[in-house]
Design a protein around this nucleic acid. Structure first.
Length: 260
DNA sequence: ATGGCGTACGCAGTACGA
């Protein structure tokens, strides 16, 4: 079973690209971020035509997440618990049944947090402070659970081509990185680092200043697996070639293969 | 980067992203 995450930067602009990728890699579950669409306008039909069940949590203009699954999605929940006043569409969960039991997926679009000094950075940290106890509750269920998406966190210097360029950026602040470590330290395994120690392993390249051509990337899209899910890992990867396609997203898909 | 690009909204130019 292949599980993938991808920040598509707008479903309207990216629909053909996303469909092409789905046909090429055929993930069983795909978590999409930045759909930038309200639920009513999400183009469900072309995804359903490829055999996917579709669940969305969108809003007007920006943000928005979606879950695609070849198997029916059960127990779908929208919104990250902990702040009823948070109107930003950044979190959706669902589960599928497999021969290894229930496998649950949390699809997240973590706040960017820039610029530092604005209200956006404390919002990012507060969002992470809600994510950690939620993840802790899920781990206590002792099922296969994957928490995946655009974390907007560069975990370590090796995860950026030029780490010093990010020192004043919310993605690389000690407070952001500390919370990411606190999350993984609950007992999650981070898929890509479990599969490779290779340097220059990135998931995002800016549209500007020839970042892609210079391989000036960062690794900010992550897949975290509970111990029960970690036991099923048979491989993982990054679909880097997609960044070179026509009209690309600035992010590329990350995936993990489970023996389920 | 005093953001040079890209997307959404909506029809000019502003908000947002990382």
């Amino acid at each position: 079973m292949r599980i993938a995450t991808w920040n598509i930067n707008g479903v309207k602009a990216r629909i053909d690209t996303v469909l092409e990728w789905l046909k090429e890699t055929s993930p069983d579950v795909a978590c999409l971020q930045e759909i930038k669409s309200v639920d009513e306008n999400f183009p469900r039909q072309p995804f359903e035509d490829l055999g996917y069940n579709v669940e969305t949590h969108g809003q007007k203009g920006f943000n928005g997440v979606a879950l695609l699954s070849k198997q029916p999605l059960e127990d779908v929940e929208r919104r990250l618990p902990g702040d009823d006043g948070d109107e930003q569409a950044r979190f959706i969960e669902g589960a599928v049944s497999s021969d290894k039991g229930v496998i649950r997926f949390g699809c997240l679009y973590l706040p960017n947090g820039n610029p530092l000094g604005s209200e956006k950075f404390p919002y990012k940290l507060a969002w992470m402070d809600r994510l950690i106890p939620h993840a802790e509750r899920r781990l206590r269920e002792e099922n296969a659970y994957l928490l995946l998406g655009d974390y907007n966190v560069i975990p370590d210097p090796i995860d950026a081509k030029n780490a010093k360029n990010w020192l004043d950026d919310a993605l690389f602040q000690p407070e952001s990185r500390q919370r990411f470590r606190a999350l993984t330290n609950l007992g999650f395994t981070e898929a890509v680092r479990a599969c490779t120690e290779a340097a220059e392993t990135y998931t995002f390249w800016d549209y500007q200043a020839g970042a892609w051509q210079k391989n000036n990337g960062i690794r900010i899209d992550h897949i975290l697996l509970s111990p029960q899910a970690t036991d099923l890992i048979s491989g993982c990867g990054i679909d880097k070639h997609v960044r070179g396609w026509e009209k690309p997203s600035d992010h590329v898909p990350v995936w993990v293969e489970l023996a389920a």
